[in-house]
Design a protein around this nucleic acid. Structure first.
Length: 562
RNA sequence: GUACCCGUAGCUCAGCUGGAUAGAGCGUUGGACUCCGACUCCAAAGGCCGAAGGUUCGAAUCCUUUCGGGUACGCCA
């Protein structure tokens, strides 16, 4: 970054163009043999009204290369700059070895509310919830690293007529011991049975509605049963969160907003936004080219949207957020567009600070996930199988390793997290054990292995860094590739936050691991020249640190041995 | 029907605020452990970037149309 600014500045002087404009043009050539930084002159041709190769030549002739640039070359319509690699290595490693490399105070004093994971009461925690959980948690870490104060909210699915049905089913066929023992699975069986029986006997639905009404009215028995179900579900979910190393600041679910909806409805009325249509109350959104948003049903009951409006209002009031993110699957993108549009119509200037961080659908190889038909894969099973497989690998390759079980957990779970955070979040995922449990190539274990390998070298070296290190040892192309990648780490974090895209971090550290592994094979790190050895050790240390930081931003552990 | 998203190597994906010969991993084939960790590395094969127009000095990238796939579209969440 810094060197690009210097180049932009000197080009600006030579060509009499604004330096910011030049900085914008600067890019990295496709092949390092061409140069390290390139200035394409094609766009300048328009204003200067000269042929690009001529401009390139003229700029080069007039230019005094800034410190850090060793040579220049005009080629085609480009001016190519070759960096002084020794200086680049020294500067980059110094920055990378300082504490909190890539961190910033960009977000100082700003809160970012992140709504993620959102488990449903009485429903199993399956692989369909992994994306929201992993992406949300990673964003939490990324924003925190950039100085923001993230607020993690688990917006529990704990409201709706379904819970009336569940209680009705429990009253008819429930067995306390079975529920205590099987928890969510037992609840799910009751729920499925209810739907089956209601097909034959529609009167059951009436019972379901009645029980839901009791929940709404605060009936003590209804609340006791529902509270019991909630506790059991959360206990199960928290076990998974613990395995994943994830915490939330709040477990405020939908029911939390029950008493907070009326003021929003009143406000909509006052502002003349509420309109009765076919018996229901709606807000029209034609000017947004969106279908209307239903606020109240014909029977006067509230809906999902009503609750989310109240939640948005509450979050703004409580946290005064700088940004509010909803890490929710893209199926709900219309809902969020409507939600944001309604808030905007209500005159909330902060509506523009809210963002739906959408991600793709998870399906199984033989079709869509379906809780009701039992076509699901439990997240806990995936995690355990990944851990088991890792343990088997460790027993085979590194049987004397201490804390094998701990490491197996870190690597196995890391593999699962990595796999959901490696592709862009909008991509659909077809879940397959084969893919998740493959640990070769661009995978979590690969990156962790690189980290462990670097750690191992550093352990062997066992000495502190030497201020007199000879960085000319890092002049070769392999080292340069590694250093360049390290240098762009802070930019990758910023971009990840900007786009709410953790995969930018995943990709960045994966590439870094690849460059380092190549370097490791081509070069001996520790040799007889102490000053040169130390420079290569600093490189190794910077790689180790950067990978560890990157992994931690993804919520993945970085074991030193594996 | 309408809106949004996705089509890049056999498979999974990068690259998409336009730039120099389209990249990686998996899989396939063939190599590399007396040497700092082989969960590693090297090499080969594999592409009209869904298609057609357009804008531009230049398009995988921007615009239009079109085909294929996905998702969602008032009283579920």
């Amino acid at each position: 970054m810094e060197i690009k600014e210097k180049i932009a500045k000197s080009v600006a002087q030579a060509a009499d163009i604004k330096s910011a404009e030049i900085l914008d043009l600067l890019e990295t050539p496709p092949d390092p043999k061409m140069g390290d930084v390139a200035l394409p002159c094609f766009r300048l041709a328009k204003t200067l009204r000269k042929a690009p190769p001529l401009i390139a030549q003229e700029i080069m002739d007039k230019l005094t290369p800034p410190a850090g640039v060793s040579s220049m070359q005009a080629a085609g319509g480009y001016v190519n700059f070759f960096l002084d690699r020794t200086a680049f290595a020294r500067d980059t490693l110094k920055a990378a070895l300082a504490p909190d490399f890539g961190a910033s105070d960009l977000g100082a004093g700003r809160r970012v509310v992140i709504d993620y994971s959102s488990v449903n009461i009485a429903k199993p925690f399956h692989i369909g919830h992994l994306s929201s959980t992993a992406i949300g948690h990673s964003l939490y870490k990324i924003y925190a690293y950039l100085g923001y104060r993230p607020v993690g909210i688990n917006h529990l699915g704990d409201w709706g007529t379904q819970f009336g049905k569940l209680i009705a089913a429990y009253k008819l066929w429930g067995d306390d011991a079975e529920i205590e023992k099987d928890s969510v699975s037992a609840m799910l069986r009751l729920y499925v049975r209810f739907h089956e029986e209601a097909e034959k006997d529609p009167a059951l639905n009436e019972q379901g509605r009645a029980w839901f009404k009791k929940i709404e009215d605060g009936d003590s028995e209804a609340l006791r049963i529902f509270g019991w179900f909630s506790d059991l579900t959360l206990r199960e979910a928290k076990r998974v969160y613990e395995m994943l190393g994830i915490q939330f600041d709040y477990f405020t679910g939908e029911s939390f907003y029950n008493d907070k909806m009326q003021p929003v409805i009143d406000e909509l009325r006052e502002k003349n936004l509420l309109e009765q249509d076919e018996g229901a109350y709606i807000v029209r959104l034609e000017e947004y080219n969106l279908p209307p948003c239903i606020i109240l049903k014909t029977d006067g009951a509230t809906l999902y949207s009503t609750r989310d409006l109240a939640a948005a209002e509450y979050r703004k009031k409580t946290f005064d957020f700088h940004k509010a993110l909803y890490v929710v699957a893209y199926q709900q993108s219309l809902h969020f567009k409507q939600l944001f549009a309604v808030l905007e119509k209500m005159g909330k200037p902060w509506a523009k600070d809210m963002e739906h961080v959408a991600f793709g659908m998870v399906s199984l190889e033989d079709g869509t996930l379906s809780t009701r038909h039992g076509k699901i894969v439990l997240l806990e099973d995936v995690l355990s199988r990944a851990v088991e497989k890792t343990l088997a690998t460790i027993n085979e390759k590194n049987p004397d390793l201490a804390n094998k079980e701990d490491v197996a957990r870190q690597v196995g779970i890391g593999a699962v997290l990595y796999s959901t955070l490696s592709a862009g979040r909008i991509k659909d995922i077809t879940f397959s054990f084969e893919r998740v449990l493959n640990f070769d190539g661009e995978t979590g274990p690969y990156v962790q292995y690189t980290h462990a390998r670097a750690s191992s070298v550093l352990r062997k070296y066992g000495k502190a860094d030497d201020p007199g290190a000879d960085f000319t040892a890092l002049d070769d192309a392999d080292a340069f590739a590694v250093i360049r990648q390290i240098e762009s780490f802070p930019a990758a974090i910023l971009a990840a936050a900007e786009k709410n895209e953790p995969s930018f971090v995943t990709r960045h550290i994966t590439l870094l691991a690849q460059h380092f592994n190549k370097y490791y094979y081509e070069h001996r790190i520790m040799d007889t020249d102490e000053k040169k050895t130390n420079a290569r050790i600093q490189l190794t240390r910077a790689v180790q640190k950067t990978i560890a930081t990157g992994l931690s931003l993804l919520g993945i552990a970085a074991p030193e041995r594996m």
